[in-house]
């Protein structure tokens, strides 16, 4: 097997797990959003690296070019990036509202405050 082989998928897995770790292990909500973003980028890289064909060029038609990289994943990811930032904005807006309501953006402290309200 030549060098890249399956290496691109391993990079994706490492990135994905990094994002996943941030999401489940960190208590801070902004940092969780950053973790989700990393997770998202790893999925993008996964798609884009699948679409690459050895020796292919960017999918813009031109004379004298035979092999093009697969354009379909590009389309999907193109829209996904913009949708991703829109949903990130929504998540951040939620964080701001949570901060308004509880005065903190740490998950633990929010849990404590809720318990205090119940008792």
């Amino acid at each position: 097997m030549e060098f890249p082989g399956l290496f691109n998928y391993w990079i994706v897995v490492v990135l994905m797990m990094t994002g996943f770790y941030i999401v489940i292990a960190q208590g801070n909500l902004v940092k969780k959003v950053v973790g989700l973003n990393i997770f998202q980028v790893s999925v993008f890289v996964f798609y884009i690296s699948m679409s690459k064909i050895r020796g292919g060029t960017a999918p813009i038609l031109d004379e004298g070019i035979e092999i093009y990289t697969n354009p379909l994943p590009h389309v999907l990811i193109l829209t996904a990036i913009v949708v991703g930032v829109a949903t990130t904005a929504l998540a951040l807006a939620l964080v701001v509202r949570i901060r308004d309501a509880y005065g903190t953006i740490e998950e633990e402290e929010i849990g404590q405050l809720e318990q205090e309200e119940e008792t």
Partner: peptide, 26 residues
Amino acid sequence: LDAVDVAFTEAAVGAGIATVLMLGTL
């Protein structure tokens, strides 16, 4: 990886707008 359109979007969105929004939240 030959995805010029995607790179364009990522540079504009991820590095530009998302950072500004995060800073706003901070």
